[in-house]
Computed example of a mutant assay.
Amino acid sequence: MIETRGLSKTFTSGAEAVRGVDLSVSAGEIVGFLGPNGAGKTTTMRMLTTLLTPTSGTATVAGRDLLRDPAGVRRRIGYVAQNSTLNPVNPLAEELELQVMLYGFRRAEARARIARVMASLELTGLESSAAMTLSGGQKRRFDLAFGLIHDPALLFLDEPTTGLDPQSRANLWKHVRTLRDQGLTVFLTTHYLDEADALCDRVIIIDRGAVVAEGAPAELKTGGRTLDEVFLDLTGRSLREDVPA
């Protein structure tokens, strides 16, 4: 579902943010992408979602060539940013309907898709609500609805549970697992090592622009180590230092 070779990004300032990253993500996986601030994970995700153009390297995302067919990539992926982009005052079902129709679906199909996604995310009954009236967990599930409404093959989640209370985090984890069980591939960044441990089939750790380790959480935690200890050994500091207050 994702295959990169030598993916790199150097900005015009000369800063080398990503240095020859090789990634391989199979269909149906939940893969966590971990790294301290400045490690290159956000830049990598922005390249994979066509928001940044790589300086060098190759990538295939959701079966489309990242450089030759970025529009094809965008049609086949969903992207949920770290910060919510919901309109605070408009009815969210209207916003979702517009989103679906921008993908070329007619109004009747758009409404059918909205009903399905709302039901799957336990949002039925909130169609006329505005984002400003919702709880943090409800807002995050609506963010997820916007990323899923066109039935993508691959979903990118950028720190999906930052700022949520434990119950809302657990609820979102449940929905992400259900999506994986339905065949969706999920690629997420997180600053919560317990989240990566509990949710991800595999984790990839990046530091200073390069991948330094990857594997299932249980494979990385050899010798009774915790994922925190593994991360500290590989990067020189705990990821918990980067968790927003």
Rank of each mutant, 00 (worst) to 15 (best):
A110F: 02
D242H: 07
R202I: 06
G163H: 07
V117G: 13
V73K: 06
G209N: 00
D143I: 04
A218G: 13
L155G: 00
G6H: 11
V186K: 03
D151M: 00
F231W: 08
T162G: 03
G183W: 02
P91C: 06
V176K: 01
T161V: 10
E95W: 00
K221A: 01
G209Q: 02
L34C: 13
V186A: 00
T189R: 03
A170S: 15
R225L: 11
V89E: 14
G32M: 09
L67A: 15
D22F: 04
G14A: 10
A59R: 06
V212H: 10
N171L: 14
T124Q: 09
S168R: 02
M1C: 12
K139V: 00
L239K: 14
L234D: 13
G215L: 09
P217I: 10
Q182S: 15
G236T: 14
D158N: 10
L157T: 05
R64Y: 10
R140N: 09
M101P: 04
G236Y: 14
E95M: 14
E214Q: 10
R5C: 06
Q167A: 11
A81L: 12
G223L: 13
F11G: 08
G38E: 08
V80M: 04
N37Y: 14
T226E: 12
S24Y: 00
L232M: 07
L164V: 11
L86V: 11
R169P: 13
T161R: 01
L234V: 00
A196T: 03
V230S: 14
P54Q: 01
M47V: 08
